[in-house]
Amino acid sequence: MSLFTWLRPRQINEHIRQRAAQLAPAATLSEDSLRSQRWVVLDLETSGLNTQRDQVLSIGAVVIEDGAIDFSQQFERTLYQRDHKLTSSVLIHGLGPSAIAAGCDPAEALLDLMTFIGNSPVLAFHAPFDQRMLSRALKDHLGYRLQHPFFDVAELAPLLNPQITLREAGLDDWTACFGLEAIERHNASADAMVTAELALILFSQARRQHLDSPAQLDQHLQRWRRRKQQNHGF
Protein backbone atom coordinates (compact mmCIF):
# COMPACT_ATOMS: atom_id res chain seq x y z
CA MET A 1 0.00 0.00 0.00
CA SER A 2 1.49 3.35 -1.03
CA LEU A 3 1.85 6.29 1.33
CA PHE A 4 -0.66 8.22 -0.81
CA THR A 5 -3.24 5.48 -0.38
CA TRP A 6 -2.66 5.38 3.37
CA LEU A 7 -3.08 9.17 3.70
CA ARG A 8 -6.14 9.41 1.44
CA PRO A 9 -9.42 9.65 3.42
CA ARG A 10 -11.50 6.48 3.31
CA GLN A 11 -14.67 6.73 1.24
CA ILE A 12 -17.63 6.09 3.55
CA ASN A 13 -20.82 4.61 2.16
CA GLU A 14 -23.70 7.09 2.56
CA HIS A 15 -25.95 4.40 4.06
CA ILE A 16 -23.29 3.70 6.69
CA ARG A 17 -22.90 7.40 7.40
CA GLN A 18 -26.66 7.80 7.86
CA ARG A 19 -26.83 4.83 10.23
CA ALA A 20 -23.93 6.27 12.23
CA ALA A 21 -25.76 9.60 12.50
CA GLN A 22 -28.68 7.80 14.16
CA LEU A 23 -26.57 6.29 16.96
CA ALA A 24 -27.46 7.35 20.49
CA PRO A 25 -25.40 10.28 21.75
CA ALA A 26 -23.29 9.76 24.85
CA ALA A 27 -25.00 10.63 28.12
CA THR A 28 -23.46 12.93 30.71
CA LEU A 29 -22.08 11.18 33.78
CA SER A 30 -24.88 10.41 36.19
CA GLU A 31 -25.26 11.49 39.81
CA ASP A 32 -27.27 8.32 40.40
CA SER A 33 -25.76 5.29 42.12
CA LEU A 34 -23.08 3.15 40.54
CA ARG A 35 -25.45 0.20 40.83
CA SER A 36 -28.16 1.89 38.77
CA GLN A 37 -25.76 2.81 35.95
CA ARG A 38 -25.50 0.61 32.88
CA TRP A 39 -21.80 0.16 32.02
CA VAL A 40 -20.18 -1.39 28.97
CA VAL A 41 -16.85 -3.13 29.62
CA LEU A 42 -14.74 -3.17 26.45
CA ASP A 43 -11.60 -4.91 25.27
CA LEU A 44 -9.88 -4.67 21.88
CA GLU A 45 -7.28 -6.90 20.31
CA THR A 46 -5.16 -5.00 17.80
CA SER A 47 -2.42 -5.63 15.26
CA GLY A 48 0.03 -3.65 17.42
CA LEU A 49 0.36 -0.77 19.84
CA ASN A 50 0.68 2.12 17.38
CA THR A 51 -2.57 4.07 17.72
CA GLN A 52 -1.95 5.87 14.41
CA ARG A 53 -1.30 2.88 12.15
CA ASP A 54 -2.35 -0.40 13.76
CA GLN A 55 -5.79 -1.91 13.28
CA VAL A 56 -8.55 -3.21 15.52
CA LEU A 57 -8.78 -6.96 14.92
CA SER A 58 -11.37 -8.07 17.45
CA ILE A 59 -13.80 -6.54 19.93
CA GLY A 60 -15.23 -8.02 23.10
CA ALA A 61 -17.71 -6.31 25.39
CA VAL A 62 -20.02 -7.17 28.26
CA VAL A 63 -22.58 -5.19 30.24
CA ILE A 64 -22.72 -4.43 33.95
CA GLU A 65 -26.26 -3.54 34.97
CA ASP A 66 -28.09 -3.54 38.30
CA GLY A 67 -24.79 -4.20 40.03
CA ALA A 68 -23.99 -7.43 38.19
CA ILE A 69 -22.66 -8.75 34.89
CA ASP A 70 -25.56 -9.31 32.52
CA PHE A 71 -24.60 -12.46 30.65
CA SER A 72 -27.47 -11.90 28.21
CA GLN A 73 -25.74 -8.75 26.94
CA GLN A 74 -22.41 -9.72 25.41
CA PHE A 75 -20.70 -8.57 22.22
CA GLU A 76 -17.99 -10.27 20.19
CA ARG A 77 -16.71 -9.56 16.68
CA THR A 78 -13.59 -10.31 14.66
CA LEU A 79 -13.01 -7.67 11.99
CA TYR A 80 -11.98 -8.33 8.42
CA GLN A 81 -8.98 -6.14 7.57
CA ARG A 82 -8.06 -6.20 3.90
CA ASP A 83 -4.59 -4.73 4.40
CA HIS A 84 -3.74 -6.70 7.53
CA LYS A 85 -0.20 -8.07 7.60
CA LEU A 86 0.87 -10.90 9.86
CA THR A 87 3.12 -9.63 12.66
CA SER A 88 4.52 -10.98 15.90
CA SER A 89 1.36 -9.77 17.66
CA VAL A 90 -0.37 -12.95 16.43
CA LEU A 91 1.62 -14.77 19.11
CA ILE A 92 -0.33 -12.74 21.69
CA HIS A 93 -3.86 -12.55 20.33
CA GLY A 94 -3.82 -15.70 18.16
CA LEU A 95 -5.76 -14.10 15.31
CA GLY A 96 -4.14 -15.55 12.21
CA PRO A 97 -4.88 -14.73 8.55
CA SER A 98 -7.77 -17.21 8.29
CA ALA A 99 -9.54 -15.70 11.31
CA ILE A 100 -9.15 -12.15 9.95
CA ALA A 101 -10.26 -13.24 6.44
CA ALA A 102 -13.45 -14.68 7.94
CA GLY A 103 -14.14 -11.56 9.97
CA CYS A 104 -17.03 -9.10 9.75
CA ASP A 105 -17.09 -5.94 7.67
CA PRO A 106 -15.47 -3.35 10.00
CA ALA A 107 -18.13 -0.68 9.41
CA GLU A 108 -20.97 -3.08 10.23
CA ALA A 109 -19.13 -4.43 13.28
CA LEU A 110 -18.48 -0.92 14.59
CA LEU A 111 -22.10 0.12 14.02
CA ASP A 112 -23.21 -2.97 15.93
CA LEU A 113 -20.78 -2.13 18.75
CA MET A 114 -21.97 1.46 19.12
CA THR A 115 -25.59 0.30 19.07
CA PHE A 116 -24.65 -2.17 21.83
CA ILE A 117 -22.94 0.59 23.85
CA GLY A 118 -25.85 3.00 23.42
CA ASN A 119 -25.34 6.03 25.66
CA SER A 120 -23.50 4.13 28.41
CA PRO A 121 -20.07 5.01 29.80
CA VAL A 122 -17.29 2.59 28.93
CA LEU A 123 -14.88 0.72 31.20
CA ALA A 124 -11.61 -0.77 29.98
CA PHE A 125 -8.22 -1.75 31.37
CA HIS A 126 -5.69 0.78 30.03
CA ALA A 127 -8.68 2.62 28.60
CA PRO A 128 -6.79 5.45 26.83
CA PHE A 129 -5.36 2.93 24.34
CA ASP A 130 -8.74 1.32 23.60
CA GLN A 131 -10.36 4.75 23.40
CA ARG A 132 -7.84 6.05 20.87
CA MET A 133 -7.95 2.88 18.75
CA LEU A 134 -11.74 2.78 18.74
CA SER A 135 -12.03 6.50 18.07
CA ARG A 136 -9.79 6.25 15.01
CA ALA A 137 -11.61 3.17 13.68
CA LEU A 138 -14.99 4.89 14.08
CA LYS A 139 -13.78 8.00 12.30
CA ASP A 140 -12.20 6.01 9.45
CA HIS A 141 -15.05 3.58 8.85
CA LEU A 142 -18.15 5.55 9.92
CA GLY A 143 -17.17 9.20 9.94
CA TYR A 144 -18.31 9.09 13.58
CA ARG A 145 -16.84 11.04 16.49
CA LEU A 146 -16.57 9.05 19.71
CA GLN A 147 -17.63 11.13 22.73
CA HIS A 148 -18.50 8.49 25.32
CA PRO A 149 -16.71 8.80 28.66
CA PHE A 150 -14.14 6.08 29.35
CA PHE A 151 -13.06 4.95 32.82
CA ASP A 152 -9.70 3.25 33.15
CA VAL A 153 -9.87 0.24 35.47
CA ALA A 154 -6.04 0.38 35.64
CA GLU A 155 -6.47 3.76 37.37
CA LEU A 156 -9.50 2.88 39.49
CA ALA A 157 -7.69 -0.07 41.10
CA PRO A 158 -4.80 1.92 42.67
CA LEU A 159 -7.09 4.89 43.35
CA LEU A 160 -9.35 2.76 45.54
CA ASN A 161 -6.54 0.58 46.96
CA PRO A 162 -3.71 2.95 47.93
CA GLN A 163 -2.51 0.40 50.49
CA ILE A 164 -1.69 -2.15 47.76
CA THR A 165 1.68 -1.88 46.04
CA LEU A 166 2.21 -4.09 43.00
CA ARG A 167 5.56 -4.53 41.31
CA GLU A 168 3.66 -4.75 38.03
CA ALA A 169 0.18 -3.33 37.62
CA GLY A 170 -1.27 -5.14 34.62
CA LEU A 171 -4.62 -6.84 34.35
CA ASP A 172 -3.12 -10.18 35.42
CA ASP A 173 -1.63 -8.60 38.52
CA TRP A 174 -4.81 -6.91 39.71
CA THR A 175 -7.02 -9.90 38.98
CA ALA A 176 -4.60 -12.18 40.86
CA CYS A 177 -4.58 -9.70 43.74
CA PHE A 178 -8.34 -10.19 44.14
CA GLY A 179 -8.35 -13.91 43.43
CA LEU A 180 -9.81 -13.63 39.93
CA GLU A 181 -8.69 -15.64 36.93
CA ALA A 182 -9.33 -15.07 33.22
CA ILE A 183 -10.53 -18.10 31.27
CA GLU A 184 -8.28 -17.03 28.42
CA ARG A 185 -5.94 -14.03 28.18
CA HIS A 186 -5.56 -11.79 25.13
CA ASN A 187 -8.96 -12.86 23.92
CA ALA A 188 -11.16 -9.77 23.71
CA SER A 189 -14.29 -11.36 25.18
CA ALA A 190 -12.46 -13.15 27.99
CA ASP A 191 -10.49 -10.02 28.88
CA ALA A 192 -13.68 -7.93 28.90
CA MET A 193 -15.31 -10.46 31.23
CA VAL A 194 -12.49 -10.55 33.79
CA THR A 195 -12.22 -6.74 33.61
CA ALA A 196 -15.95 -6.58 34.43
CA GLU A 197 -15.42 -8.88 37.41
CA LEU A 198 -12.60 -6.64 38.63
CA ALA A 199 -14.76 -3.53 38.08
CA LEU A 200 -17.53 -4.94 40.29
CA ILE A 201 -15.04 -5.39 43.15
CA LEU A 202 -13.82 -1.83 42.64
CA PHE A 203 -17.37 -0.44 42.57
CA SER A 204 -18.06 -2.15 45.89
CA GLN A 205 -14.95 -0.51 47.31
CA ALA A 206 -15.97 2.86 45.86
CA ARG A 207 -19.35 2.70 47.59
CA ARG A 208 -17.64 1.98 50.92
CA GLN A 209 -15.52 5.09 50.29
CA HIS A 210 -18.68 7.15 49.66
CA LEU A 211 -18.09 7.39 45.92
CA ASP A 212 -21.46 6.11 44.80
CA SER A 213 -22.07 7.71 41.42
CA PRO A 214 -20.23 7.84 38.09
CA ALA A 215 -19.90 11.62 38.45
CA GLN A 216 -18.40 11.36 41.96
CA LEU A 217 -16.02 8.64 40.87
CA ASP A 218 -14.88 10.73 37.89
CA GLN A 219 -14.32 13.81 40.05
CA HIS A 220 -12.31 11.81 42.59
CA LEU A 221 -10.27 10.25 39.78
CA GLN A 222 -9.44 13.67 38.31
CA ARG A 223 -8.23 14.93 41.70
CA TRP A 224 -6.12 11.78 42.10
CA ARG A 225 -4.52 12.36 38.70
CA ARG A 226 -3.68 15.97 39.59
CA ARG A 227 -2.03 14.87 42.83
CA LYS A 228 0.04 12.27 40.96
CA GLN A 229 1.19 14.90 38.47
CA GLN A 230 2.15 17.30 41.28
CA ASN A 231 4.03 14.56 43.13
CA HIS A 232 6.00 13.76 39.97
CA GLY A 233 6.78 17.44 39.36
CA PHE A 234 4.74 17.81 36.15
Results as ranks from 00 to 15, higher is better:
V40K: 08
R10S: 12
E155T: 09
L113G: 06
P121Q: 04
Q147C: 14
G179K: 05
I69V: 13
P162L: 06
S120P: 06
E31W: 04
A127D: 03
A215R: 14
W174C: 05
G143C: 12
Q81A: 12
S135M: 07
Q147I: 01
A137R: 07
P106C: 10
A188H: 09
C104D: 15
L44G: 01
N187S: 13
A24R: 14
T46P: 11
L111N: 09
R35T: 12
D212K: 09
I201D: 04
Q11A: 15
S213Q: 07
N119R: 03
L79E: 08
R167I: 02
A68N: 11
S58Q: 08
F178M: 08
L138G: 03
D43V: 01
N187F: 02
Q219V: 01
P97N: 06
H220N: 04
R38E: 00
Q230M: 10
V153C: 10
L29V: 00
C177Q: 14
S72C: 08
C177Y: 04
R132E: 14
S189R: 14
Q37P: 02
V40W: 08
V41E: 03
R38T: 01
A107W: 02
R226T: 00
D70A: 12
Q74V: 09
S33V: 00
T5K: 15
Q11V: 12
R35D: 10
T46C: 14
D212V: 00
L7N: 01
L159S: 05
L134Y: 02
A99S: 04
F125Q: 06
L138W: 00
L111Y: 06
R207G: 02
R167D: 13
Q216T: 00
F151H: 04
I69W: 01
L123G: 03
V153P: 06
Q73C: 10
T175A: 08
A26E: 08
P149Y: 05
V56A: 10
L123W: 01
L95R: 05
D218T: 00
F75S: 02
N119K: 04
L156C: 07
Y144A: 11
L146C: 12
W6E: 15
H220S: 13
L217D: 02
G170M: 08
Q163H: 10
L44H: 02
Y144Q: 09
T87A: 12
P162D: 02
A215W: 03
L113Q: 03
S72H: 13
L113A: 07
R227C: 09
P121D: 05
L134V: 00
A176N: 13
L95N: 06
G233D: 04
A102Y: 01
F71H: 13
E155H: 14
T5Q: 15
D105F: 12
V40F: 07
A127C: 09
R167M: 10
F129C: 11
F71Y: 07
R208K: 15
G96S: 14
Q18Y: 02
K228H: 10
A26Q: 06
L57A: 08
T115N: 13
S47E: 06
L91T: 01
P121F: 05
G60K: 04
G103Q: 11
L113T: 00
T51R: 15
D212C: 07
